[in-house]
Design a protein around this nucleic acid. Sequence first.
DNA 1: ATCGGTGGCTAAACCGGTTTACGAACGGTA
DNA 2: TACCGTTCGTAAACCGGTTTAGCCACCGAT
Lengths: 369, 369
Amino acid sequence: MPGVPGQEELVVGEATEQRVRIADVAREAGVSKAAVSFAFNQPDRLSAGTAARIRDVADRMGYRPHPVARMLSAGQTSTIGILSPQALGAVFANPFFALFAEGVASVTEERGFGLLFISPFHGSLATALDRATVDGVVAIGLDERHPELDALRRGGLPTVVVDAPAWPGHRAILVDDEGGAREAASHLLGLGHREVLVLAVQPAIDESGDQGVSGRRLAGYRAAFEAAGLSLPGSAVVDAPATIEGGESAFLQAWTSGARPSAVMCMSDAAAAGVLAGARRLGVRVPEELSIVGFDDLPLTRFTDPPLTTVHQPVRRKGEAAARMLLEALRRPSGDDQDHTLVLETRLMVRRSTAAPSGDRCQEVVVAR
Amino acid sequence: MPGVPGQEELVVGEATEQRVRIADVAREAGVSKAAVSFAFNQPDRLSAGTAARIRDVADRMGYRPHPVARMLSAGQTSTIGILSPQALGAVFANPFFALFAEGVASVTEERGFGLLFISPFHGSLATALDRATVDGVVAIGLDERHPELDALRRGGLPTVVVDAPAWPGHRAILVDDEGGAREAASHLLGLGHREVLVLAVQPAIDESGDQGVSGRRLAGYRAAFEAAGLSLPGSAVVDAPATIEGGESAFLQAWTSGARPSAVMCMSDAAAAGVLAGARRLGVRVPEELSIVGFDDLPLTRFTDPPLTTVHQPVRRKGEAAARMLLEALRRPSGDDQDHTLVLETRLMVRRSTAAPSGDRCQEVVVAR
DNA sequence: ATCGGTGGCTAAACCGGTTTACGAACGGTA
DNA sequence: TACCGTTCGTAAACCGGTTTAGCCACCGAT
């Protein structure tokens, strides 16, 4: 009864239960391997009686087709990967990412695809990809100038890149970072703010034009200032990791260095929450003495005190769209030669962390400039 | 140069680039498939020159061993699964889960294992497991009475269960839910609270003794009350999803139904944050008019206003321990027959969401009882 | 009685690697 | 020169399924 005959006493105390293979079922049922396979996958090719009998035997023996073997002959894994250049620990700690993954997962799950997380293996994304059994990947957080980017492109795996321009022949999803940032800055300018601090997300790439999320958002802030006949000095831009702790410490450091902005524009909600915490610690009242604007509109913004004014981007929907795009690309591998790019909208959500600067401060600032 | 000869013109406009197989490399290099395999995996079995030449050819052709094929012959996938009975959307939305996954991921990543998320397929966990190419699974959130539990056990996949008793022959990780809950309740009782509201996590299983997280925590609350010569009426226990929204609405509903607890004990921090939000909306001051205790001690508790008093459990470490246990079980499949169970500690973190009830209220309550 | 068609099943090829068993060439020793 | 032990490489089996090509028996039609 238990396991494969002839192997039972191989090792005493060892798990006697070997995995039941298709050949075992075939032998037990007195048919060929093909018949067993047909019984499950193409019952029409067998007489009803035989099919039922085979299924019965298989059931009794506890047979389950080996998923890896099935993958190999099927030529596909029915699994997609989420590729991130960061370590997984950092990935899951990031609520933005969790929300994005939520979107991806809801689609893959519905279509019966597995979801595998891919992060650098021994520091190499290319190696990690080589080991990953996926039909395609959604790449997020991948900087345009990532050193292994070429290797990835050459890998030939169907890919949807998120928050970065499409590679030739691949697909991409972007949001209107610049427009959202412009709206945020305009909002503050309209309230009368002139002296602001910008908390950029970690790799604050300014140099090479459009490159990167940070660059696009900064361009948006700048555009609003220029439209108002003002300019945003480079000294007003500070880097901060997109975490609560990162935002708090960057803000505190700027403050202790003597900066006295009337408003802070953050490129992430997490950092904005950190600024909020820092302001509370300093006894600076929000929004009376300090206005704060975030970016992303994560669920947590509605539960900060005060609720955070922020630039909304459809993060979850971005994940869904990425997954759908990828599955679509898998269905018709040829695709057109033109690269498909989807740009989602952003919009400012005015809540209660922003207000007009207090009178004297406003005055002071105007004089200072 | 490009792809497999004889297939180039199969479909015009189709991707001409076929995947390079080991046989292609072998042919190109004028050696056998085995030699190519050796060149990568056991270079010692080849002369240095040959090995180098083969690697060179392979490199030039862009050869990458097919991971699925490798899995099949290796007999292992080097991937582990995180199994959850909930839909993935709900999973990632839960910060508790993200933290747990962070722990699991940090270990698997370090050991070079992939991480696959497994959730019900068409409603069936067993089916999802059958399709999952993993060497073992970490099961979390699995209720002892889950209908498919037997199927999972019978599946024969090495498993570590989290927050549930060990199955015979499997391993388990628990935390001292009851002790933590008892501490929380004692803390409130010591402050003078008598009229409390309990927000249980969704499946509030009370009936069958020890079963489930909810049951164990409730038992802890109860034990503290009994130790004080009091009792916790069933009417004081309400179900709430472990989300901010869930906590808020459950609290508001209880309040509008006339309940006037001086303290709320929540079985999750998310729910506690929701209660906090609800109290703010009602204009009830925390902790002066209402004390709140959470459970889990997620990072967010330090950034609520006021910071949340809560029962700490080492969630991240729980994930790490689960992963390590599983990898250990994979290394020595036989194991002892005794089931290994690891119980981690919990402890109360007193922050600022709890205080003695205001005098009159306290009076009123005492009279009321 | 012969032929053509079809239903039911099987043998063998295949997916793309890894690994085992073995053979040929080579160098050193008796 | 015959013998032996390495070194280097190959053919073939194997992992566990799916799928194609084809065999055989049985049926009705001519």
